[in-house]
Structures are given as C-alpha cells and as structure tokens.
Design a protein around this nucleic acid. Structure first.
Lengths: 341, 341
DNA sequence: TTGTAAGCGTTATCAC
DNA sequence: GTGATAACGCTTACAA
C-alpha cells in the first residue's frame, strides 16, 4: 500500500536519497556534487553530503542533468574509418582522451555500419543533443557537404577538407611531411632521391611531391623529373616503381615511398636484386602504419600522420579550448626513425 | 516582458511545438511518433502529426525520453583495444551495426585514454544509465573482475573469459581454427606440417595447438613433437621457428604459423633460402590481419578471428535477441583463402 | 548558508 | 480516439 508500486529494476539512488541521508536539501547536494562556486557551504555540510554519496554509491544521472541544464556534454564523432580499415583509430583515441579531459562524452557513429549516410548519423546525434560534431574520413580527401550543414551543431572536419572551406578542418601537413622525409634522406648524404608517389588526385600525393621538391630545392639539388614514379598506394606498385627507378642510367641511392605499403614493395624489389637496406639503398616511407613499418626488416623509417593530434585538436576546438579558424589547419607530420635510412 | 527570457541558443522544436502546429495534444504526438500500438488513431490525424514533424524538423530528445521512460537505450562498450593497436575494431563495427539494427545507441569508452581502470569506465557509463555493458580486450585472454561486477548492468565479456566464468563471454574458437588451418594444409596433400606456435600461456596458443593435433589425428597422420616450435608472435620468431623446422632431417612441406606476423617472418626465411611459396613450402597464418595477409607476396591464406561476429553477438545478447549462457561461447574462425597454400 | 519551487521534453495513467 | 496531468532526476532563480 505504498504510494507507488516499486519498479521492477531497483532504481539507482538519486540526489533526493542523498539529501535525505545527509539531512540537507536537494539543492545543497547539487551544489556540493557539482562543486558550484559562489556559494559558501561549510566543510561540515560538504563532508556529510560526500559521505552520503559514498555510502549510497550515488552517480548523477546525465540524462536528467542534460535535460535540465540544456547542456548534454556530448560530442559526436561521425566516421567512415572504422568499417573500412582500422585507418584512423588514432583519431578516435585522441578525441576520446581530450573529451575525457574536458568532461565530455564522445558519441561515435560509423556511417558504414548501417546508419547510412552522413545525414542519418547527424540525425542520430541530434537526438542526443550533441554540442559539437566531428566528421572524420578514412583518408585525407575533399568532401562536399552541400547544404547539409544547416541546422547542425558546431562542426569540424577531421582528415578532410571542404571545397569552399567554411568549416574548420584539421588535416596532416603533407607538404611538410614530404619535405621532412626528403630532408632526412638528404641529411644521410643522399643526392639522388627517387620518389614513388601516389596517384595525382590525392591531396597526400600533391603535398608529398611538393615537399620533395621543397627539400631538394632547399638543399640546392637539381630536381630530376625522371626520379618520379606514380604508384597506386599498393605494394605491387611500389615494387614496379622501385624497379623503374633502379633501371635508370643514373639510379637513385635512396627511395622516398609515399606510403608504407609501397615501401614494402620496394623492399621486395631490393631484396630480389640483392641490394641491402639501407647500405645500398635507403628507403623512407609515409603513414607510419605500425603493423608494417615496425615489422619490416630492417624496420622502416617513415613519416607519421598526426591522427591522435587531429582528434585531440578537434575536441579542443569544439569545447572552446583552442578555437580553429575556418578552412584547413595543417598539423605537422613527425618523423619516426627506425632502421631503413 | 515575456514570461521567460528566450535562451541564447534557439532551442530545437519539441513535441509541444508539433502538437500546436498539428492542432492535437502532446499525447497524440507521442503516440504517433512512437508508433504505439493499441490506440486507434485515424490516418488523418497521423498524417497531420507527421506533416508537422516534417515541417518543424522535429527530432525526439533522447535525454527526456530516457529520463522519463527509464530506458536509455544505451549500450556501453569498454575496451582497451583502441589505444593499444587497432586490433579489435571489428568488435566495434559489429557491435555498432547490431546496436543500430536494434535501435540502441553504443557508448564506447577506451580505458587506456585517460579514463583509467575498468571501474572508472563503468562509472562513466552508469551515469548514462546504460542498459548493458560489453567488456572487450585487445586479445583473447583471461581477466579477473573480482567483486567489481556487483552493481553493474547486465555484462558480457568479449574476446576474454573470466576465471570463474559466471558472466557470459564470447571468444574465438581457437581450437576449431587450428584444426581448420591444418585441415586446409592436409587437403592440399601435405603430411608433414610444422607448427610455429605462440607462447604457451595464451589461450590462442593452447587452442591452436590442440586444433593442429585434432586435425592430424583425424587424418591419421602421426603427431611429431619435433614439428612444433614456440615463437613470441613477432616476426623474428617466425623466421627463427621456420628455420629450425626446415633444418630438421625430415623438414615439413607446410608451415602453420599461429599468427600472420610469424607467417611474415617465415616468408622471409623461405625467400632467403630460395624456396617458393606455395610451390616448395605452403604457409598458412592465423588472425587475418588484412594489412599483412593481403599485402604479402604471395597473399597469405589465413584463418580469421570472428571480431565482427563477437561484437554483433554481444549486442544481441544484451538486447535479448540471442541470449548467451554463462561462461564462454566459442565462435568459429573462418578460413580466408588466398595464395599461399 | 540553505531551502522552495519551477520546469527541462518526454512517457504513462487516467478521464473524457 | 484524444487530452489533461503527473512524474522522471536534476539545475537554478529566488526566497528565507
């Protein structure tokens, strides 16, 4: 004959329960657990409240908190990077970490997992009152959002850029990375440096090529167009490209492969020809795909993509900690030194 | 002089707004948008409501919905698999997909990203009133939860098992996988099959070894202990192990490497010795780490771990679609045929 | 320094 | 068939 039938599932303790146990009002409990400044609550009261919280195992209900305060504390990450390949888990890890640090919850939706298009994903996030949105792609590319952004919460692009560039975007500084790779080879004494690049319609290819030129120009080395070969990112094309370069009348003494898979192909070719890495030919890759780079023999020196950094910066932008300007912000690609140079 | 000062951010349309526009009550709107059965609402009213929903771009507020209905629809996935290696993104993908299909939202927390221990992660999820919890590890192993499970929502282990096995757990059927790999080699006519296994204290090693024995016994082939070598999962040890096996007086004609990295090491050794795969020696791996298996030359035939399946089944258990018994449920590991056998 | 009360957007229980 | 009305657990003026 109680006022209300007890619910099936034993409901978790509420602030109400804490207040009762501590002998204070709900308001006081709210002030204490949220550490509200500007109210002077005696240490004794605070202690009582915390003791009650502890004893009951009270955990605030984020649903209620978000509903009432109109601040969900949820940041949305929409990506096509999970289903395809484990490419950009670094983005997730970096975002997650930063979100936790700023007291935010990260909601991740993979657009390839049935959710369908970006629009569906955004709709799903809307229902959860997300306060910011990150759109991440599985590789650096240009995306077109058309009018879709209208009505969306503050949004930042990760590893992709928009044609008209009104949204802030975080991308790797491919050019700086290409320069870094080439400079590393130059610093090791090489002067003829072959480039096995990716297809021209990728921002990555264009940037890495420009970086290669930059470095050569900076070192006063003549740029020889014949030292450029175009692959398709796959291992086979690294093999082919390396072969073509080594068949040149004046073959290169070092190879800059625009990704690690092609470097892996180059390794194969060098081995077939009885050439040692780095003794006879030095090799440097790009992407730092640990699974490959760390396991090749010798381990591959390569340039890393700043995935974690991109995830981190995206969150810091959305929470207002480090605001980003509209358009692309390029993040530096660090060198990962191993044994192939 | 309005009753309430308008909030800074233009608030999203509510059911209230929809009701006003459609000229019905909030209740009716709720019935219509939730497709409540048992109430007969005329098609005309339904249409009016949907039209208003469309016009306003109304999206239900999950915070309010969850608060009121006491069903958040959130499933929590706690993992250490993101930060370490991109090992088990398949688990996430599979879980995500199944969650979407069942109208649930997946909340992912990576314990290595600052959140700290499992307990912290579980606390974070509790605040969001998760209705089920998945605990996933980065590789098949035994975990001990002590008393930590008390007070947690329904929980399922993914890619790990508990010592006392009271929680349901989803793990790969390592033994079946080992047998499948060996059977594949047997079917190709091999009779002396070397095993380069992982360290003995892994469930994966124990299971794959047992499967190797099973297959040999099943084919009436004598089990020769000398054909077993123990590696450490790394490429070097695959190289070493393969070398030892080929130096045997009666060397094997096929190699079963308990993971793809060791298979990669074996490839290196075979190439060094001028042996062709699969012509001179067939090789089969385990794990199907696409990045390696698909890119080796020749592409590696291997046994895949059922990551997506584990994620999917975990969700289906939690939503009650396909309940799991306490203790381990072993999921089959399928063969991925490529070119090395 | 603490308490009262209103209300966030929704669902659920009743009357009508 | 549809509509009031009361929670859900919390934050936040404002009152005491």
């Amino acid at each position: 004959m109680l006022g209300r039938v007890t619910s099936e599932r034993p409901t978790r303790p509420s602030q109400q329960d804490v207040a009762r146990l501590a002998g204070v009002s709900r308001t006081t409990v709210s002030f204490v657990v949220n550490g509200v400044t500007g109210v002077a609550i005696p240490a004794a009261t605070r202690a009582k409240v915390w003791a009650a919280v502890e004893q009951l195992g009270f955990r605030p209900n984020e649903l209620a908190r978000g509903l009432r305060s109109r601040r969900s504390g949820v940041l949305g990450l929409v990506t096509d990077a999970i289903a395809t390949t484990p490419y950009a888990v670094g983005i997730i890890a970096g975002a997650q970490e930063a979100a936790a640090r700023h007291g935010r919850t990260l909601l991740i939706v993979d657009t390839d997992s049935g959710a369908g298009s970006l629009l569906d994903a955004a709709a799903a996030m809307t229902r959860w009152q997300v306060e910011g949105l990150m759109l991440a792609t599985d590789h650096h590319r240009e995306v077109s959002l058309d009018g879709e952004v209208a009505g969306l919460p503050p949004t930042v692009l990760v590893d992709c850029v928009e044609a008209d560039g009104r949204l802030p975007a975080l991308v790797p500084d491919e050019r700086q990375g290409g320069r870094l790779a080439t400079d590393t080879l130059l610093a090791a004494g090489h002067r003829r440096i072959g480039l096995v690049n990716g297809p021209p319609d990728y921002p990555a290819s264009a940037g890495r090529l420009a970086g290669w030129r930059d470095a050569l120009a900076g070192a006063g080395v003549e740029v020889d167009q014949r030292l450029i070969r175009v692959g398709d990112w796959w291992q086979e094309s690294g093999h082919t490209g390396a072969a073509a370069l080594l068949d040149l009348p004046e073959p290169p003494t070092a190879l800059f492969c625009a990704n690690d898979w092609m470097a892996m192909g180059a390794y194969d070719l060098l081995r077939e020809r009885g050439l040692r890495v780095p003794g006879d030919v030095a090799v440097i890759g790009f992407d730092n795909r640990e699974e490959i780079a760390a396991h090749l023999r010798p381990a591959l020196t390569t340039v890393a993509l700043p995935y974690r950094e991109m995830g981190r910066r995206a969150v810091e932008h959305l929470v207002g900690a480090t605001p980003l300007p509209p358009g692309a912000t390029r993040l530096p690609c660090p060198l990962v030194s191993r044994a192939s140079v």
